[in-house]
Amino acid sequence: MNIADIAEVQFDAASFWEAAKTHRLLVARCNACGEAHYYPRQICPFCRADDVELAPASGRGTIYSLSVTERPDHRRVVAYVTLEEGPTMMTRIIDAPQDIAIGDAVTVDFEASPDGLTVPVFRRT
C-alpha cells in the first residue's frame, strides 16, 4: 500500500487532494466555531461539529521549523509552515537557498510525489 492508496481511503480529505491536483491549497475551517485546522477532517477537532468547509488558502506562510538533509545525490528540507490562516502543516521547502531559516516567508507550490499524489510544498517568497 503506497501513500496515494492510503490517501484514497481517508475520505475526510478527498477534496483537499482533488484541489491539490490543480495546484490549489485548501484549508479546513469549521462554520460552527470558526476555527481552522490541519490536517483536514470532516468533523471539527475543536468543537466536534459536522460543519467543516474546505476553502482556498492564501498560500502564504512562515517557516516554524525545518531540518535540512544533504546527501551527494539530493538535498531535502523538511519543514513545518504556519499558514496565514493559522494552522501549522508539515511540508517541504523546494529550491531552498543555503540560508533558509525559521521565520522566512514562504509561498505554496505543488509537487507530484513518486506514487502519484500531488502534495503542497513551499518555496521562499
Binding site: I3, A4, I6, A7, Q10, D12, A13, W17, Y38, Y39, R41, V78, M89, M90, T91, R92, S113, L117, V119, V121
Partner: peptide, 10 residues
C-alpha cells in the same frame, strides 16, 4: 489519517 500529510515530506 496523518500519513498522506506527512509521509511525502519526512
Amino acid at each position: 489519517p496523518d500519513t498522506p500529510f506527512e509521509a511525502p515530506h519526512a
